[in-house]
Computed example of a mutant assay.
Amino acid sequence: MLSKKNFAWVALMITAPTYALTPTELTAHLQQPSTVQGQFVQQRYLKNITKPMQTSGEFALKKQVGLYWHVQKPLDLQLRVRPQGIAQWDKKTWRNSSQSGQAAQVKLFMAVLGGDTQELAKQFNLSVSGSLKNWTLTLQPKTAIMKQVFENISIQGDQVVRQVQLREKQGDRTVMTFQNPKINQTLNPSAESALK
């Protein structure tokens, strides 16, 4: 039998509103740091190959400037992703890539890593679960173009994005894991030079 004190507590728990994290709150949370840097591991699972293709390296994200992406294994490749497009370091200078359809890819990638749910909502239906300390953002394509490419995208994190999983329509999958994040610290010289 419940005592009056226990009854009051149970009644409060039943009637208390359940807090649900919103995309707007998640965006504000993820856009607080001016810089985030660390290491990444990217695994690409192709439906006809049993072992994933793996690359790893370091990254640096600078708010409202761009992303420095340095693949260190299995090859050495430095990329700079900014709103204007993607550029590759050729050991002397940054050379802009001229891939078609790149603008949409750049916007999507920057929005995913920067937690820009407003930009993501233009092409996906968003579903957020968890809390600011442990959240998951699921993206379901809503535009015809994104429906042709993706089954869904799942992003997980805490103070920063920790994992991105892209499930493609044809059965392939890419998993990016971000490790050892450093927030609001001086960027390493290569990243600083790329993102100035």
Score class of each variant (00 low, 15 high):
2 L>G: 04
4 K>H: 09
4 K>E: 13
5 K>P: 00
5 K>L: 11
6 N>E: 14
11 A>S: 09
12 L>G: 01
14 I>V: 06
14 I>D: 02
14 I>K: 03
15 T>H: 00
16 A>V: 00
17 P>L: 00
17 P>S: 01
22 T>G: 01
23 P>E: 06
24 T>R: 08
30 L>E: 05
32 Q>D: 04
33 P>T: 11
34 S>L: 10
34 S>T: 13
35 T>I: 03
35 T>F: 00
39 Q>W: 04
40 F>K: 03
40 F>G: 00
40 F>S: 01
42 Q>H: 01
50 T>V: 09
55 T>F: 10
56 S>W: 00
56 S>M: 04
60 A>S: 09
65 V>Y: 08
65 V>E: 12
66 G>H: 10
66 G>E: 08
68 Y>Q: 06
71 V>G: 08
73 K>Q: 15
73 K>A: 09
78 Q>N: 11
84 Q>A: 15
87 A>T: 09
88 Q>G: 03
88 Q>W: 05
93 T>H: 09
94 W>E: 09
96 N>C: 05
96 N>I: 03
96 N>E: 12
96 N>L: 09
97 S>G: 06
99 Q>F: 11
101 G>Q: 10
103 A>K: 15
105 Q>P: 00
105 Q>T: 08
107 K>F: 00
108 L>M: 09
111 A>T: 07
113 L>C: 05
113 L>V: 02
115 G>K: 02
115 G>F: 04
118 Q>H: 08
120 L>I: 06
120 L>V: 10
122 K>G: 04
125 N>K: 12
126 L>K: 11
128 V>Q: 14
129 S>L: 06
129 S>C: 09
131 S>P: 06
131 S>R: 14
132 L>D: 05
137 L>M: 13
142 K>Y: 07
143 T>S: 15
145 I>L: 09
146 M>I: 10
147 K>Y: 10
147 K>D: 13
149 V>P: 12
151 E>I: 12
151 E>Y: 15
154 S>A: 15
155 I>H: 13
155 I>M: 13
160 V>M: 07
161 V>L: 07
164 V>C: 01
164 V>K: 07
165 Q>F: 03
167 R>T: 07
172 D>P: 03
173 R>T: 11
173 R>V: 05
175 V>S: 13
175 V>Q: 13
176 M>T: 06
178 F>Y: 08
180 N>V: 05
180 N>Y: 07
180 N>R: 12
182 K>S: 07
182 K>A: 12
186 T>W: 04
187 L>H: 12
188 N>P: 04
190 S>C: 00
191 A>Q: 10
